[in-house]
């Protein structure tokens, strides 16, 4: 464990909690892409299948349980509890355009052709594109509430910090995980456009982020 990875995990946890609290307190999921949240729950489910078979550390196990619980709670709030506030008419990204290539690639490019490895690889590739429906929804509505942009900021920051963690681990342990690194770089690049808008608009105290 290093400070970059710890900061990354904390940033990830903060992002998930920001979103969950926003939906719970406003009793509404307007402007939130349910599809992205389902994809994130799928990412955690396929990545943490070793939760009961491999024990790494208390921290590792606790964080996996927390991420799984919070992501499913978020999906529950969107599609069950506050489903009447869900903007399905704006959440129209075709997720099959994400799932098909990701499934194909995880069969082609993986460390071992075993169910657990292929599912882990699937979760890594899927995570890189899981935010697409949410970013698409924002471009479609042309705006995002500031709390949603803070959620996206911490979500984008988490994988950027993981990239620093991978550089650090390569430098100190000569460890590198190419699938995770390539996918993590792609994932962070997808956030760059949002980061630009976030720093130039939201942090100027503009409240809502309205797209040009």
């Amino acid at each position: 464990m290093n400070v970059f990875r710890l900061a990354g995990d904390v940033s990830h946890l903060v992002a998930i909690i920001i979103l969950l609290l926003k939906i719970w307190r406003s009793k509404s999921c307007a402007g939130i892409s349910g599809k992205s949240q389902v994809l994130f729950a799928l990412v955690f489910t396929t990545r943490y299948l070793d939760l009961f078979t491999v024990f790494i550390s208390v921290y590792n196990t606790v964080m996996k349980v927390v991420f799984l619980a919070l992501s499913y709670a978020t999906v529950y709030l969107i599609y069950m509890r506050f489903r009447n506030s869900y903007n399905s008419e704006n959440d129209t990204f075709r997720v099959e355009f994400l799932l098909v290539p990701v499934i194909g690639l995880s069969f082609l490019e993986n460390y071992a052709f075993t169910p657990l490895e292929i599912l882990w690889t699937f979760s890594i590739f899927l995570e890189a594109v899981a935010i697409m429906p949410q970013l698409f929804m924002i471009t479609k509505t042309g705006e995002a509430e500031s709390i949603t942009t803070h959620y996206l900021f911490f979500l984008g920051l988490y994988r950027a910090l993981y990239i620093a963690n991978w550089v650090w681990r390569y430098h100190t342990e000569s460890f590198y995980d190419l699938i995770a690194i390539v996918s993590g770089v792609v994932q962070t690049i997808f956030f760059c456009d949002f980061f630009y808008l976030y720093f130039t608009r939201v942090l100027r105290g503009r409240g809502k982020m309205t797209l040009p």
Binding site: R5, D9, Y111, W120, D177, I179
Partner: peptide
């Protein structure tokens, strides 16, 4: 092999 290591990352 590297496939063992990555499980320690979330």
């Amino acid at each position: 092999d590297s496939s063992v290591n990555h499980k320690d990352e979330l």
